[in-house]
């Protein structure tokens, strides 16, 4: 089985409180925060490695990001993926989900044919959950999102996926793309021997020119999304003491809660 897994480099969730927003430029400031593999992408990597161990084949990891995204890809190599490719180009910066998916599609085609593409259902930072399905669309593949279990049976994948109010079961014909939930598996830890085994492996870096892609279709230039405003939500709390005898107080409280739409 030839498997491609998408690995996004995101700021370390452990240090999420250091992330700030720049309202003037409408961007997320994450300088100085180390990049890690997007948590759900670790589940995707795990599933890819398990399938490889079970059925043979290879696993390639693909990412689009700044040069610093090499770190998380090296981690993917240490976890056991066979090949890691970073799509990195100044002209890829500022991409919305559409331009991102378009560049990733070009990257996936460049790398060859895959039986299965796996990625996390959403990223820890952007959290749109759009890139996976968009990529499937670009590549003309069937897809399932928020997958919680997957079993291959004669070219068909039997899949369980989360929907808003429950789970759905479906069959997906291979080749396909799955975006995965955390319930899918428990990702393995980085092992020292994995780190040592990955010593000789390099992260391959490809530019738009390598992909033969027109810069106007990538990055800010290729992104129809315009960010109107970006702000940190403020929550204010206020206390109020209701006085009176218990029955009276309860009536006032129920009335207030009803007005607030809480009950």
């Amino acid at each position: 089985m030839q498997i491609l897994v998408l690995v996004k480099a995101v700021p370390d969730p452990e240090r999420a409180n250091e992330i700030t927003l720049d309202p003037e430029t409408g961007t997320v400031k994450r300088e100085g925060i180390p990049l890690v593999i997007n948590p759900l992408d670790r589940n995707a990597v795990e599933e890819a490695l398990r399938l490889k161990e079970e059925k043979g084949g290879t696993v390639a990891a693909l990412s689009m990001g700044p040069p610093a995204a090499e770190g998380p890809l090296r981690e993917a190599l240490a976890l056991g993926v066979d090949r890691a490719v970073l799509l990195s180009d100044r002209a890829m910066a500022g991409a919305d989900t559409l331009a991102t998916a378009r560049v990733l599609a070009a990257g996936a085609r460049y790398l060859g044919d895959f039986d299965l593409i796996l990625c996390g259902a959403e990223s820890f930072d952007g959290g749109t959950a759009q890139v996976g399905p968009e990529l499937a669309q670009f590549l003309g593949l069937p897809h399932a999102s928020y997958v919680t279990s997957a079993r291959e049976k004669g070219g068909l994948l039997e899949v369980e996926a989360k929907v808003e109010d429950g789970r759905k079961k479906l069959q997906v014909r291979l080749p396909a793309l799955l975006t995965v939930s955390r319930e899918l598996n428990r990702p393995r830890g980085l092992s020292f021997s994995g780190i040592v085994r990955a010593r000789g492996k390099k992260v391959e870096v490809l530019s738009l020119a390598d992909l033969g892609m027109d810069p106007s279709r990538a990055g800010v230039a290729g992104s129809p999304t315009i960010i109107g405003d970006i702000s940190t939500p403020t929550t204010t709390r206020s206390g109020e003491i209701i006085k009176g005898d218990p029955e009276e107080v309860v009536d006032v409280l129920v009335k207030k809660l009803t007005e607030a739409g809480v009950v």
Binding site: R74, E75, A78, S191, R199
Partner: peptide, 18 residues
């Protein structure tokens, strides 16, 4: 080194997860 940083990470994962 980069490798040593990754070893630190692997050790931290072991410590925090296990």
């Amino acid at each position: 080194t980069e490798e040593q940083e990754m070893l630190r990470k692997a050790a931290r994962e072991f410590a925090e997860q296990v």
